[in-house]
Design a protein around this nucleic acid. Sequence first.
DNA 1: TCGTTTTCTTGATCCAGGTCTATTGGAAGC
DNA 2: GCTTCCAATAGACCTGGATCAAGAAAACGA
Lengths: 248, 248
Amino acid sequence: MHMKSSLAQSQWPVSVATAPACEGCGLVERCFLAKPLPDDDGDCADIVRRRYPIERGERLYRRNTPFTSLYQVCSGSLKTQRETPEGDLVVTGFFLPGDVVGIDALADRQYQSDAYANIDTEVCQLDFERLLSHCAHKPGLNAWIISMIGSYVRRKDSDLSWSCSLQTHQRVLRFFLDLHERLTQASHTQSSGLSLPMKKQDIASYLHMTPETLSRNLAQLRREGLLHLHDNRFTLPDTTRARAITGL
Amino acid sequence: MHMKSSLAQSQWPVSVATAPACEGCGLVERCFLAKPLPDDDGDCADIVRRRYPIERGERLYRRNTPFTSLYQVCSGSLKTQRETPEGDLVVTGFFLPGDVVGIDALADRQYQSDAYANIDTEVCQLDFERLLSHCAHKPGLNAWIISMIGSYVRRKDSDLSWSCSLQTHQRVLRFFLDLHERLTQASHTQSSGLSLPMKKQDIASYLHMTPETLSRNLAQLRREGLLHLHDNRFTLPDTTRARAITGL
DNA sequence: TCGTTTTCTTGATCCAGGTCTATTGGAAGC
DNA sequence: GCTTCCAATAGACCTGGATCAAGAAAACGA
């Protein structure tokens, strides 16, 4: 660990993975800095702006603005949404710790959606041009990018395959199963249930149903003992049965 | 153009972009060989197996087999499909000349779907490992990969945003508008209509509706003068109105 | 050419989920 | 405290598209 000096005016901190800002982050397995650059000597530090805070409701980027950076979520949660021609908003994705946001902008270098923080959130901003320019002499970095994009593609593909074909109660259940899985792998804490980091109407929008339908289905799932949900905390008492119902 | 010799037993032809197999291909703008390697000296030739033919109904790769190659369509058309837990098949994508197939396998190095030829088809097979290994000294290649994946992501994202929220007749119309655009940019020929390279039941599956519903909607669109479709050839007489209806 | 098979089309019925309305609950502001 | 506002529930109704059933038309092999 050389170079711990911080240039006060610099937007990009120059210190590396184990620097103060990374302490207590909790993201190890999927972190951009930890994985492809385990023994980084500091020359990649200009890529990243670490633990950049976004408060609840704040916008991270806007649709149709030039693409400059990808963002990896450290804590909290983001959503992306876009507007239909009729003028109403549709939520296109939820992003949890470890997830990378902004990948939809790769094609034409313009963000394709608006990104908002669902709750108070921290992200690591990754300058994409600098990221690419480091690939040549950091083979692990290229692999990290490919696999990161790969995960995004896989998610979109699987979303697409069930978002329409399943019934509403199956979609709801599947959403909670997925969320449960992603939240536990991110934080490892299995306390008294997990907290639901987004609003119900956003869930409804994401699942292509009305808030009323979501509400009815939640009530039904509670009645059947498949989901506990109270005060924005939830547990899945019977994941085996839930999986069977959703077809997993 | 050096090195036009062909090693008879070699699976991988050693000649380059303008070699015999590429003559009359027609793909220029989006071709893997033409774009990132315009002045290639032949050292990338081990990446590609050019114009590999697949006949109608034949399978290119199978789900849950190890990922080795990406395939760029030269001529013809492919579909990818997967099986639902209930056992019925869902078409997840159509691929036309210029499109790259197999991207969904990047995440866990296993193909996520079955790929079949809709009609007699030619593809260029790209060995992925060799492709990556050439990235370090071919900056244009890395950019090509990123932008290729980017296009795929954009397509999936936009599919996801309309596949559920639109009514069936809008989805059908949008499908034909999209197909028209992709086919004309690929071939530049605007003869007496474009030929429809896939079966109607596959279109129905892809659009998340029953063949019956598709058929009814096609009849309706014909009646309204928005679509001509006969003998697997189609034209869109009024794209302006069609776009307005689908919200574009 | 024919007969067989598969794909496509049309009509009649039914139900999941959207729409509309009203009510309840909870958080922010004064 | 009370009010305001928006999110969340619940009931009554309605419609788009699935389902079921049957017929027409291609595609295919002999």
